[in-house]
Design a protein around this nucleic acid. Structure first.
Lengths: 196, 196
DNA sequence: ACCTGAACACCGTTCAAGT
DNA sequence: ACCTGAACACCGTTCAAGT
């Protein structure tokens, strides 16, 4: 059986990811090392490598663990404006729950492309009047805008957690989306400008 | 004089920062180490510490070096929409010139608060009809949106350098700003919603 | 199957010593 | 004033060996 002398149960990836997230939330990503993580788990540093290929894969696991917290709400019948605000608030809550990990979430956007969130967002955007052929671009822009705003917020661009600043930002977005509903073109006088 | 046996001239912070930037652009931020940098400068690793306090300060210097590339254009009489597009394109060019450093620029937004850029942006926003008391919030939001979009782009959210996606994003912003010009309130039906 | 200790190739940084 | 070598306290990771 060869279970660790210092522990009752064998390690598992889940346990490792959870403890890594705890350490990151507590001390920051920079402070996480395989050796410290092993110490926190009361285990030899090298034991980790039987459950996780390397540190990069470990961080990948932590990122997916955090992203699993996202539970996009169902359509509750409210206006698309309200639903946009709700989605933004949800992502914002996640960012503030894990401020130290958040920049690393932004740095790996393939994980941010969770189908659940994307589907809900697209439904709301369709309700706002975004035409099908521009849906992907608008959805990506919105996602990037939101992630960027939260990154700036977490990095201290605003003094503390400034809810008014967040409201202003969401309003800017909602107003921008409204143009799609008015004429279906997004009012884009520059859509055919030759790109750079 | 005690100049390095292997070099003609003594080191300088400028030389160190420039070489560090070169290495970062070439091999990525993760690959930069004090020891490799010293080797690239043909110098003993410890010599660096006579010109730079530590690695964090070195990266700070590299960031300010890159930010000094920003030269916000003067008012050329074009519409505020065109000027917004110009500012965005300028920041985008910088991001693509230094894709590896760019995420680290975003992580230290105090450096992004260059007065020059901020002043120009505020002038353009005033032309768009943003009222004085909301200027700071809108300026910050715009900056964070742009930085976030470019971060997503650099991190591979879009397939390659997708100019159409960037145009769509800027259009969304421009449309959002247009609401301020229509009624001066930004059309913000939710400005007084109780935060959180 | 799971764990471990020793070892390797790296780090950033300090410090006393050189010229 | 500027540079240097040795040393310290860390890293991530490999590998052969243990049960």
């Amino acid at each position: 059986m060869a279970v660790s002398a210092r522990r009752g149960a064998p390690l598992s990836p889940e346990e490792i990811h959870a403890e890594a997230l705890r350490l990151i939330d507590e001390q920051g990503v920079e402070a996480l090392s395989m050796r410290k993580l092993a110490a926190a788990l009361n285990v030899n540093p090298m034991s980790l490598y039987h459950h996780v290929p390397n540190k990069e894969a470990l961080l990948d696991g932590v990122r997916t663990l955090v992203l699993s917290e996202i539970k996009p709400a169902d359509d509750d019948g409210s206006s698309w404006q309200e639903q946009i605000r709700g989605l933004g608030a949800g992502l914002r809550a996640l960012a503030h729950r894990h401020p130290s990990l958040y920049p690393y979430l932004c740095a790996h956007p393939q994980l941010m492309r969770q189908d659940g969130v994307s589907d809900v967002l697209c439904r709301v955007l369709a309700a706002a009047g975004v035409p099908e052929e521009r849906m992907a671009a608008v959805r990506n822009a919105l996602f990037a805008f939101t992630a960027g705003f939260l990154l700036a917020e977490i990095n201290g661009m605003f003094p503390g957690r400034d809810d008014a600043a967040f409201e202003e930002a969401v309003t800017l977005i909602v107003n921008g989306l409204s143009a799609y509903g008015r004429d279906g073109s997004g009012g884009n006088a520059h859509a055919e400008v030759s790109p750079g």
